[in-house]
């Protein structure tokens, strides 16, 4: 005879944290899209210059917008993921903020290295 409250379809709008949670869950789709896009890029390159240029031409306009949105979602995912790090990795006698800063430094370093390889 207990009453079970049905879950409303808009439950994720009730709190900012729930909304963020929904966005982060959604971000996985965009992460997946980035992987597909990368594979398409590799495939285009391996198919020769012509295919590569066709791929670049295709990557403007709507696809570019999609990629920008995807980038934002991936950033959201990365930042929220990094912010968790100090709570998942508890190192004795090391304050949580150090763990956090080290993560961001590592991220920056890897990104810089990648940028150097690509833009060189």
């Amino acid at each position: 005879m207990t009453y079970v409250k049905p879950i409303s379809t808009l439950w994720w709008l009730r709190r900012p944290s729930y909304f963020l949670f929904a966005l982060r869950e959604l971000s996985s789709v965009f992460v997946a899209w980035f992987v597909v896009y990368l594979l398409m890029l590799v495939s285009a390159i391996s198919a020769g210059p012509e295919a590569y240029h066709r791929f670049l031409d295709w990557s403007t306009g709507r696809v570019l917008v999609l990629n920008v949105v995807a980038l934002l979602f991936v950033l959201l995912h990365a930042v929220t993921w990094f912010n968790l790090a100090p709570r998942a990795m508890v190192v004795p006698h090391v304050p949580p903020v150090v763990v956090l800063v080290l993560h961001y430094l590592l991220w920056l370093g890897l990104s810089a290295a990648l940028a150097w390889v690509v833009l060189r």
Binding site: S17, F21, R24, E25, T80, L84
Partner: peptide
């Protein structure tokens, strides 16, 4: 758990 974090709040 997908780390909503509301439990700790």
């Amino acid at each position: 758990c997908t780390f909503v974090g509301e439990c700790s709040t």
